[in-house]
């Protein structure tokens, strides 16, 4: 990547978000370019998930602007984000355990059979077979090998399988931005490797990827840049080549100013 910063594909600036008495994000700027993996780190409660949910339209920011390829856009709902090609894997996965894998993979975007134009879309018959074909393709791609059938209920799957399903849902949709919120936290070594492969594949197919993790070793393996949040504030954004693990840890835990004060 070198030191030149690629032009951002998705950029937000001056994001503020408050939950009752908690100021979760203050004046946060964030960006990610196509073909790069931007790591987002920070302590628990730093506001990482909140920022991702705002990017995905699950929360609306109290203040702030969005740009997509230098065009100003508004993201006020998950549908807005999906229309802009933004997909997210939530930290809590957000799967419906009572539904099967294939239903979860198409949730909210069920394909319907043609020829029912005379009724509202919500009341047209779902094309279950197309849905299953899509689900099979998505899970095969991720090599969820242990998955017996896309007709299995998600409630009966293991943590790793669920994680894979959640990733498959985000990756399977038409997207240019993929946000992954701690996708490897619950996984073993082999499955973590699979997820990292998916992330690399996304980058190589010119997606803009945001990757949240507490594992700096993973981040050094795949990230191009890293953005540090602390108490809902920007601390720093670096090229990964220009920074050491120690510097990142200091920035996460003490912030840069306090860190240098401390050193002085």
């Amino acid at each position: 990547m070198g030191n030149s910063t690629p032009p951002p594909h998705l950029r937000v600036s001056r994001i503020h978000k408050r939950f009752g008495g908690v100021q979760a994000l203050t004046n946060v700027d964030f960006e990610v370019a196509r073909g790069e993996v931007m790591a987002l780190v920070g302590d628990n409660g730093a506001g990482k998930s909140t920022l991702m949910k705002i990017l995905a339209g699950a929360y609306t920011a109290d203040e702030g602007q969005f740009w997509m390829d230098d065009r100003q856009v508004t993201v006020n709902s998950p549908n807005d984000a999906a229309d802009l090609g933004i997909q997210i894997v939530y930290q809590d996965l957000a799967l419906c355990e009572n539904l099967d894998v294939s239903a979860n993979l198409s949730l909210g975007a069920e394909p319907v059979r043609p020829g029912w134009g005379f009724v509202p879309r919500m009341l047209r018959p779902i094309d279950e077979l197309a849905m299953e074909v899509k689900a099979k393709k998505a899970t095969d791609q991720l090599e969820v090998r242990t998955l017996k059938s896309v007709r299995a209920k998600v409630g009966g799957l293991s943590g790793g399988q669920r994680q894979a399903i959640a990733i498959a849902r985000a990756v399977g949709a038409e997207s240019s931005v993929v946000l992954l919120d701690e996708p490897t936290a619950a996984l073993g070594v082999a499955q973590t490797g699979q997820v990292l492969d998916v992330v690399k594949r996304l980058r190589d197919t010119n997606h803009a990827v945001v990757y949240i993790s507490h594992n700096l070793r993973e981040i050094f393996k795949i990230a191009d840049r890293i953005c540090v949040l602390r108490h809902g504030n920007n601390v720093a954004t670096w090229n990964i080549a220009d920074v050491s693990a120690d510097e990142i840890v200091v920035a996460m835990t003490r912030g840069l100013d306090e860190g240098s004060d401390f050193a002085a």
């Binding site: 995905a56 709902s77 998950p78 419906c96 949730l107 909210g108």
Partner: peptide, 8 residues
């Protein structure tokens, strides 16, 4: 909450 987040 998942239903809401997928835009329902």
């Amino acid at each position: 909450e998942s239903a809401r987040r997928v835009g329902m």
